Computed example of a mutant assay.
Amino acid sequence: MKKFIQKLTILGMALALVACGGKKEEEASVIKIGSVLPLTGGVAAFGQASKNGILLAQEEINKKGGINGKKVEIIFEDDEAKPASSASVTQKLINNDKVISIIGAVNSTCSIADGPIATQNKIPMITPVSTNPKVTTQGGEYVFRACFIDPFQGKILSKFAIEDLKAKKAAVLYDVGNDYSKGLAEFFEEAFKEAGGEVVASETYNTGDSDFNAQLTKISALKPEVLILTDYYNTVGLIAKQARAAGIDAVFLGGDGWDSPDLFNVGGEAINGGYFTNHYSPDDTASQVVEFKAAYEKKYNEVPSSYAVLAYDAANVLFAAIEQAGSTDGEKIKDSLKNIEYQAVTGKIKFDEDRNPIKGAVILKAKDGEQKFVKNVKL
């Protein structure tokens, strides 16, 4: 009996070693990448669109054999668009899931929280859509982005307001507690004043507010020609309705935070005639845009937003950098990203000294439930 038990023990140990070896071999053949997105909460539409874009990129790369013969596995985490949650799940991805890089976050406030963690752990991070300059300057040398930044976006809005709309008086209304909203508003104000325009009102509110009548009453009395709304689609829609009810007939202008079909569900007719800056237009006839749009619509049966396309671009830039590095070492991937030149759907991506891509923008018009392409803009 004793010998029988010994044999069973030896057999068990052998099976465990085989299983362990098989697991290690399986892990060695997989590249784990984390993704931090707002999959629930007030801007869940942004998170889901971003997830769709990343999953499409993952599917395509794996069909081609993966990266240097290894399959790509994306591990998604929900940050609920909250900086504290974002930092927490970033730590989880790095310490528990052992990811080699991170795609995300979406909200600038979340990316600002995540960046220093990524750099401290030497984990390359690329955000698809966080436009606040502090994302990379405070995040450190391991933090990159696939989108243009707010100083550029603010100048584009100012240029369009003055040159195309012939506006001389502007009012600004923004969320004082949101880095994206506050930063874009301030960059617009600076550019508009430098160009000779007058900012007749600069009003603020707090995150989560839903009643803007006090601020809008002040703005209405000053009769601006344009009203700059730098928040996300859900809040912009609410403000647009209340602004029209308050008698404001100014043209609404905003940034890429407007980019969601839900803008029209919330804002209705009030948002008609508004303009916003964006990273691409689905109406673009460039071959890469056409091919991406066709693949995305086939998979998801919807027109891709800029969040979907930028997440797709961010994922593919990262995949290319890992392939060029020939390694999953964080420092080598970071160095590869710094020197990469990649033709993405939204344009050629080459990073400047602050790890921001130098890109153009488009102006879109909100009309009858659709985004209409107006023009391409470069400074």
Rank of each mutant, 00 (worst) to 15 (best):
L165W: 04
E331G: 15
K2A: 04
L173E: 01
I219Q: 01
I333F: 06
T230K: 03
V18E: 13
S50E: 09
N62C: 09
I33F: 12
F292D: 00
F252I: 10
F4Y: 14
I31Y: 02
D249G: 13
Q288P: 00
D114S: 15
K378S: 02
E189C: 03
A321I: 09
K169E: 04
K7H: 01
V36S: 05
R355S: 15
Y307E: 01
L318I: 10
P133C: 15
A314Q: 01
K332H: 06
L39P: 09
F76E: 12
G115H: 13
A185T: 05
A170I: 01
G326I: 06
T90Q: 05
I162L: 09
Q138E: 15
D249F: 14
H279L: 11
Q120V: 15
A191S: 14
L8H: 05
K92G: 02
E186C: 05
G326D: 15
K338I: 11
N68S: 15
T277G: 14
N376R: 07
I5L: 12
A294N: 00
K7S: 06
S86I: 11
Q120D: 15
E323C: 12
Y275V: 02
E370M: 11
E25C: 13
Q138G: 14
M125C: 13
A84M: 08
L216C: 06
L227T: 09
P38D: 04
V36D: 03
T217A: 09
K168H: 03
G183Q: 01
M125Y: 03
S336N: 11
K350T: 00
E190I: 14
A113F: 08
L216A: 10
V317I: 15
L15D: 00
S202T: 08
G66D: 14
A185D: 05
T204G: 02
V236F: 04
I75P: 12
K98Q: 11
Q6S: 08
T109Q: 14
K338H: 07
T285Q: 07
G104C: 04
K332P: 09
K218Y: 05
A315S: 09
K223W: 10
V377L: 08
F351Q: 00
A49M: 13
Q153V: 11
V135H: 13
N62H: 11
E370R: 10
I239T: 01
F276Y: 14
F319I: 07
H279C: 05
V176Q: 02
L11S: 07
S130Y: 09
N52E: 12
F76S: 10
Q138F: 15
L337I: 05
K51A: 14
D284M: 01
Q242L: 06
K365E: 13
N234Y: 05
T119Q: 11
Q343K: 02
L310M: 06
D97C: 01
